[in-house]
């Protein structure tokens, strides 16, 4: 057991702040060990202070915030591409995001406070791999992919496969998340977050739904949840029930029941697993009512 220390200082660090992606990838290639990638640091610093994250002395901090190549928001054939170090505020304020991906805007608008959103980056929010990350929840519903780059290599990983556990991802030690790609799709979406107070609070649970309709039936639906499992997850059993049909009182009931059964929430100081399970159903109900107006 570790002694109680109210707030720990940041340990001694070696600080490297490359201006280009090549430099950053070279750095990762050369020194695979003892590197901590830093962007906004809004998750890293509190974790160090509280003792949840122990940095070894003289750890190499790779600050990627100054890399211009990671700051783009563009909409093109492939879809919406957002650079990893775009801040959460920049996402919210972007006309491109507003017009092409309102779901993402809505989810990110509810992360932290304005001060946090002004400094935290979308890449950081994803790579931190919090089970409660609101951005990841919306990106799951949007079927986004992540571009992971290492020296001379690049691969695309569907966000659905990216998370491994709390704080754990498929990112290799020489890799950097460089951009998020959201495929171009037409559809309706909604995002609902439940916190304990009205503002600036971690999600007890959050839900994002993206739905596509064809001939008055649901042709595709993606439902993602935060804070109900070790990682943000898709509720694929529930999706299956809804695809190909209309929303009726009956299948709404089944969907609510199914979603409660397919998640595995934890107990913590913020909520019990029972409440989270219960709420996954209630938020799904609210989300579907929002979307279908029933």
């Amino acid at each position: 057991m570790r002694n109680f220390i109210g707030s720990r200082s940041i340990s001694k660090i070696s600080y490297f702040c490359p201006k280009s992606l090549t430099e950053a990838l070279d750095f990762l290639d050369n020194c695979k060990e003892n590197v901590k990638i830093l962007a906004g640091g809004t998750d890293v610093i509190p974790a160090v202070r509280s003792g949840k994250l122990l940095l070894i002395d003289n750890i190499n901090i790779l600050d990627i915030k100054s890399i211009d190549e990671l700051k783009h928001i563009v909409f093109e054939e492939e879809g919406l591409r957002i650079g990893a170090t775009v801040t959460l505020s920049e996402v919210i304020e972007s006309e491109i995001v507003k017009n092409n991906c309102p779901l993402l805007k809505k989810a990110i608008d509810q992360i932290g406070s304005m001060q946090i959103r002004n400094w935290a980056t979308i890449g950081g929010n994803i790579c931190n791999a919090s089970p409660a990350a609101d951005s990841a929840v919306s990106l799951l519903a949007l079927d986004a992919s992540l571009r992971l780059q290492s020296k001379g290599k690049s691969r695309l990983v569907p966000i659905n496969e990216f998370f491994v556990g709390p704080g754990k991802t498929k990112l290799k030690s020489d890799e950097l998340l460089t951009e998020i790609i959201i495929p171009k799709r037409n559809g309706n979406s909604t995002f609902i977050k439940l916190g304990r107070r009205n503002a600036f609070t971690l999600s007890l649970i959050s839900i994002a739904v993206f739905v596509q309709m064809k001939d008055n039936v649901i042709s595709d639906i993606k439902i993602a949840l935060g804070a109900v499992a070790p990682t943000p997850i898709r509720a694929q059993n529930t999706e299956k029930i809804l695809i190909g049909g209309k929303i009726t009182e009956e299948n709404l009931k089944t969907a609510v029941q199914t979603i409660k059964e397919e998640i595995n929430p934890i107990n913590d100081v913020r909520a019990s697993s029972e409440y989270r399970r219960d709420m996954s159903g209630e938020l799904l109900r609210k989300a579907l009512i929002n979307l279908f107006g029933i």
Binding site: L38, I45, P46, I61
Partner: peptide, 28 residues
């Protein structure tokens, strides 16, 4: 010192941030 209270808010390039969450080299 963990970004929860805003008492250390300053404007960085014109925008409010919690100065407790910014490492000093980052203001270069």
């Amino acid at each position: 010192e963990e970004g929860e209270c805003g008492a250390c808010t300053v404007l960085l390039n014109g925008k409010p941030v919690c100065s407790c969450l910014v490492l000093s080299p980052q203001i270069n």
